[in-house]
Simulated assay, not measured.
Amino acid sequence: MKSFEFLSKKREEKPRNCGITMVLDKGLGLESAESLMNISGDYVDYLKFGWGTSIVHDREIVKAKVEMYKKHDITPYTGGTLFELAYMADKLEEFFAEAHELGFPAVEISDGSTTISHGDKLKYIQMAKEKGFEVLSEVGKKNPDLDKELTLDERIEYMQDELDAGSSLVIVEAREGGKNIGIFDQSGNAKEDEIDYILEKFDGSKILWEAPNKDQQVFFILKLGNTVNLGNISSDDITSLETLRQGLRGDTLGKI
């Protein structure tokens, strides 16, 4: 039982179909991660092992963390950069086998830092599904100049194709910083007209909006409600985001 529970706003319990929170693990130690999940795990749905961090940490620790997250009803998954590294090295079979061995139930398929044809990306989404993984895919480039070459209509087309290929959620790229990329301008402000256009053409319940900064989280919650799916949340900000979702901070108090 939570303290002051009579003042809380109930949200859908896990496994949730909406109001999903994806947290970025940038290299937490096992004990630190477990302590954090003991207090905040109820509010985390997906846990991304960021970039290629899994490569530089002890295999048994990674495996133990994966199992710990799953015990908290959280889906841990490999970051898209790890898939891209495996693609570049022509080691995709080994990548999928190792992900299975480590206990990951999901993987991210992206092409943010590499050049992969759209058709091949869809093929790899299907391949991961056939190998028993849940797939989250990401649309967008990590280089702002390359990202700007993608039109909104192209993004939406790719998002729909990836959903049709088997992705359970499509991530809209914003990187860890959330500035000058995708739907955010150089100051990190959301481009509301572009977001509205995307939502006119694509099922918003299947979008995981990367929103690493508090102002961005507030924007999405006030615009789309506390059931909006948000990702790339810092492990330090799990409780912060949940209080925003529940209207327990001045930014959203009485507004949701």
Score class of each variant (00 low, 15 high):
143 N>Q: 10
181 I>M: 02
157 E>D: 09
172 V>H: 08
144 P>L: 12
133 F>V: 09
161 D>K: 06
190 A>H: 01
168 S>Q: 11
187 S>Q: 01
164 D>H: 04
159 M>T: 05
184 F>Y: 15
149 E>M: 12
182 G>F: 03
190 A>M: 14
167 S>L: 03
166 G>F: 06
154 E>T: 14
188 G>Y: 01
139 V>E: 01
189 N>Y: 04
189 N>H: 09
167 S>T: 03
134 E>P: 03
165 A>N: 05
128 A>T: 09
150 L>M: 12
132 G>F: 08
145 D>W: 13
152 L>N: 07
146 L>Y: 12
149 E>W: 05
166 G>Y: 06
165 A>T: 03
130 E>S: 12
165 A>K: 04
181 I>P: 00
159 M>G: 02
184 F>E: 01
127 M>K: 13
147 D>Y: 15
144 P>V: 11
134 E>Y: 10
141 K>N: 04
153 D>K: 02
132 G>A: 12
181 I>D: 00
186 Q>S: 14
182 G>H: 04
172 V>Q: 08
127 M>N: 08
143 N>Y: 10
143 N>V: 15
143 N>K: 15
147 D>S: 11
165 A>R: 06
140 G>F: 10
127 M>S: 04
182 G>D: 03
159 M>C: 07
140 G>T: 13
153 D>G: 00
169 L>D: 03
155 R>S: 00
142 K>Y: 15
168 S>W: 04
159 M>I: 07
127 M>G: 02
134 E>I: 10
145 D>G: 10
128 A>I: 12
162 E>I: 05
153 D>H: 00
156 I>V: 15
140 G>S: 14
161 D>P: 00
138 E>I: 10
127 M>L: 14
178 G>Q: 13
169 L>Q: 06
173 E>M: 05
140 G>A: 14
162 E>N: 04
151 T>L: 08
149 E>V: 11
